[in-house]
Write a protein that binds this DNA or RNA. Structure first.
Lengths: 227, 227
DNA sequence: CGTCCATTTGAGGTGGATCAACCCTAGTGG
DNA sequence: CCACTAGGGTTGATCCACCTCAAATGGACG
């Protein structure tokens, strides 16, 4: 639902702008912005917390996780980035998160400085970036609700619903990440994630079709769990 | 630290624009944007989850909390809004959060539609809104780390540090909210918040000067707790 | 067919929730 | 000035959801 409205907003804007545009993932930019395609292998790091934030990225295919680390190694995955998601844009000059490829992943890379210049020069670019950021904030706010107030099984249910939405409601939901990553995203351990999935399975709400392939048998009851 | 950089960014932009500007909280807008001042009493609701999102707000004085509710009444406070913070801007057409005044609070109100129009017409307005949203996202990301991976005492320590930053590092930190609100913000109960504050006190890190007035005796060790 | 991970399953421990008193402090009214 | 009250805050005892540690199972790939 989030994705749909963002996509239609982008399309609307596309119709208005001149022919001198190119796509940077979901947003339209002027041809002046140089972009290049790049590839990252599974588990390869794209950038680390503290690195200078020179580039911004858009996922073409594959999946990326961005996470924050605590001094003693505890890890919180802030977001998973799927095709057409932008990432790597930080408010400060250095990255506040580490980004790794979860699978073989292709991205489009652009210069942060150049994109910011375009935002200064062109209201429609700034507006698109603003909407994209607002959508990410909306997602982050929903995660705050999960992490702060939902039980383990409710978090997993809400997570499955979101992944289903973002992956387009296909028949079989193929999760691109390990149990451990889901745990680090939901503030749980991988064991608890496994048990929660098991619980949803034994209630007949989901069906396993391989460890990372899940069929949502009863979306209504799944929504019920998410409160 | 976040606030400082945002302020300087806003000042930078101010210097460039013409005289036909007015302030909407931290951002500069064209005079065409109608704004009005409004007052809300302590505990008064400003808008509710699900209301049509017609207006956007900037805090003048006082404090506001915005929260999401689960079906059974569980509550997660997504953010506290202090003077100069913008709030009420949702990605969708309806508010996804409920906003209440924590104390006697003055706000500036503007039409969401008009502000969006300005963002479409003026790149600098869109860019400022983008930066503001990016900063909120940065804060939300930090909270995700707290809620997902920090212990109770670490969450409270991180919370005190953030409030200290946002309130300008004054001698006595005056919290505008109840223990219960802090709990609903940090994913804890009010009892646990109280015990955590007590623990920090008995370690000599903070000093109580009234239940809502706290002196940060040892900011370095406080940072240590936040990891 | 064996190795390496990811995942599941099991048993036990614990941090924070819950439930329940109790204690402040400010405000109110006599 | 001093009860009285009410709401916020603290403190204590118990419980349980989830973590931790450990071992078994399964699946992908050489």
């Amino acid at each position: 639902m989030h994705i749909q409205s963002a996509t239609s907003a982008a399309q609307q804007i596309n119709r208005k702008v001149s022919a001198a545009v190119r796509q940077f993932g979901p947003i339209s930019v002027e041809r002046g912005l140089a972009v290049r395609r790049d590839h990252f292998a599974k588990d390869q790091q794209i950038f680390a917390e503290g690195d200078r934030s020179n580039n911004v990225y858009s996922v073409v295919c594959g999946a990326v996780r961005s996470c924050k680390l605590l001094g003693d190694g505890r890890c919180q995955i802030i977001a998973f980035h799927l095709p057409n998601d932008l990432f790597g844009f930080d408010f400060s000059d250095t990255h506040t998160e580490t980004a790794d490829a979860l699978a073989e992943t292709d991205v489009i890379v652009a210069s942060r400085r150049e994109l910011e210049q375009q935002a200064t020069d062109h209201a429609d670019v700034a507006e698109q970036l603003w909407r994209l950021t607002a959508r990410q904030l909306d997602r982050a706010d929903n995660y705050l609700l999960s992490l702060g107030r939902r039980t383990a099984i409710e978090r997993v249910a809400a997570f499955l619903i979101e992944m289903d939405d973002r992956l387009g409601g296909v028949e079989i939901l193929t999760l691109p990440m390990r149990r451990c990553d889901i745990g680090d995203h939901l503030g749980l351990t991988l064991e608890t994630v496994s048990r929660a999935l098991n619980a949803l399975h034994s209630k007949g709400i989901i069906e396993a079709a391989g460890t990372r392939d899940i069929v949502l048998r009863d979306r209504k009851r799944l929504h019920g769990f998410a409160g």
